[in-house]
Simulated assay, not measured.
Amino acid sequence: MIPQNDYEDLTADFEEVAQPSRTYKLDLERKRIVGFTDGREAIEQAIYKALSTERYDHLIYTWNYGAEIGKLFGQTIPFVYSEIKRLITEALTHDDRIESVDAFSFSHVKQKVHVQFIAHTIVGAIEIQKEVDI
């Protein structure tokens, strides 16, 4: 006997709720955790951590977390400029709080590429600067 279901009675009796972004606050100068942070500061910290973590190198993180910036080491400046935009965008847009990344500008001094960009988040635009060794 096959059970019969009346699909008209199936309604969602739950509501999706966004989780707060409250997390431990990193004190990068003293290399300590000091309390908690939330909101804009938590998103800035998440951006810093995602761009500072090499993707696929740490078992504790999923394969979606981090950036593959290490593969740019030893590459030519034009290649780095073209790839770093894609790598940063890919690393950051996995976070639900970051809607888009744009307004990239690049410069380089010797073996360091300086990149500036704007991350559009749920709390507004955040200007980010990152230095990459090549």
Rank of each mutant, 00 (worst) to 15 (best):
Y65A: 03
K49H: 07
Y61Q: 03
T76Q: 13
I88C: 01
D96K: 07
A46S: 11
T93S: 04
Q75R: 14
Y24F: 15
E29A: 08
L59I: 11
D95M: 09
T76P: 06
D9W: 09
Y61A: 05
A46V: 10
S100W: 03
V123A: 04
L26P: 07
H108Y: 14
R40E: 15
I69Q: 04
M1L: 09
V115I: 14
A91G: 05
V34E: 15
F104L: 01
V123E: 11
K31M: 12
D6M: 04
A42C: 07
R40T: 09
Y7G: 14
R40S: 08
M1W: 04
A18Q: 15
G35S: 02
P3W: 03
T62L: 01
P20G: 08
I33F: 14
K25Y: 09
E41C: 07
I69D: 02
F79Q: 04
Q75S: 08
V113C: 02
S107R: 10
L10E: 15
V115D: 02
Q45F: 04
K85H: 05
E90H: 11
G124A: 05
P20R: 05
L59F: 12
V113I: 12
T62G: 11
H120D: 11
E90Y: 12
V101I: 09
W63V: 14
R86G: 04
S21V: 15
A103H: 12
L72G: 06
Q116M: 06
V132R: 00
